[in-house]
């Protein structure tokens, strides 16, 4: 007996909806699980006190500071480099063998697993350049990791600016650089910022790279050459070594909230860019 196409369609659609619901269910479950376990233990003092007794007591202020500093270093390097790369690719060259090679490099770099960035950062920054386990080493390694994200997102943003704007600026006597800075970058800015914010998010959630290059000191970092732990590393150590489930949950909850805020922010920026285009 043949099942009628209408029934097949209904069945298929049911399966697809089920799959989508379960994917979302997982998302909600993960977030709910962590927040439910963590919110009870979050307090003002947890955010502002030093890490005591390897994380059994006290707060996570040094981890927050470590996270912020490392993200700053990473973005400080990756954002200018990445945006410049994307400007070159989108505005300063024709597609050809050179861009193919560059794009190949970017695509491959995007696929390199974080543990490899960790090994690389360890041998180059920590050992050979002698920065030791430090915020600098961690930030540099993270910068290498997030570079492809920033390049891709900002190139897309640059390409979404109408070609006309460039023609108008050039016809009014703008130099190539003026065309870019005055009639392209201002309109690509939300998209470029989205890339940068996604890079920040990637840096915050990363553990493997940081643990090999920045170490996991519990003290408050005093300079960029000090070892420090990020919130993700702190959480990993608490959970893995069974130091304190309560504090692990609380740290995870803070991490998840940060990531949520960052993603929502990045998405709304992207959305505004797309709306502006139509």
């Amino acid at each position: 007996m043949r099942i009628s196409p209408a029934i097949t369609q209904r069945l298929a659609k049911g399966v697809l909806i089920l799959a989508t619901i379960s994917a979302l269910g997982v998302l909600i479950f993960v977030i709910g699980f962590v927040l439910a376990g963590g919110f009870r233990h979050i307090s003002w003092s947890f955010l502002t006190e030093p890490i005591l007794d390897m994380g059994r007591g006290g707060g996570i202020l040094p981890a927050i500071a470590g996270t912020i500093l490392m993200v700053f270093v990473a973005i400080g390097i990756a954002a200018p480099l990445g945006i410049a790369s994307s400007i070159y690719l989108a505005e300063y060259t024709e597609e050809g063998r050179v861009t193919q090679t560059i794009r190949f490099g970017i695509n491959c770099l995007a696929g390199v697993p974080s543990i490899i960035f960790g090994l690389f950062g360890f041998i180059l920054f920590v050992v050979i350049l002698g920065f030791g386990w430090s915020i600098i080493s961690g930030g540099f390694s993270l910068a290498a990791m997030i570079l492809p994200t920033i390049i891709r997102t900002s190139e897309e943003a640059l390409r979404s600016v109408p070609k006309n704007y460039r023609d108008v600026a050039a016809s009014l006597g703008a130099t190539r650089w003026q065309v870019v800075t005055r009639s392209v970058l201002p309109y690509a800015l939300p998209g470029i910022l989205t890339g940068v914010i996604l890079g920040i998010g990637r840096s915050i959630e990363e553990t493997a790279v940081v643990i090999f290059t920045a170490g996991s000191a519990v003290q408050m970092p005093k300079s960029l050459f000090d070892s420090a732990r990020t919130m993700a590393v702190h959480f990993y150590i608490l959970a893995r070594e069974g130091i304190s489930n309560e504090n692990a949950y609380a740290t995870a909850a803070i991490l998840i909230c940060t990531i949520l805020i960052i993603n929502v922010f990045a998405y709304s920026l992207m959305h505004r860019l797309m709306r502006g285009k139509s």
């Binding site: 109408p162 006309n164 704007y165 023609d167 108008v168 009639s183 309109y187 502006g276």
Partner: peptide, 8 residues
């Protein structure tokens, strides 16, 4: 140009 292209 043919179509008006005011910058935003």
């Amino acid at each position: 140009y043919a179509t008006p292209i005011p910058l935003p």
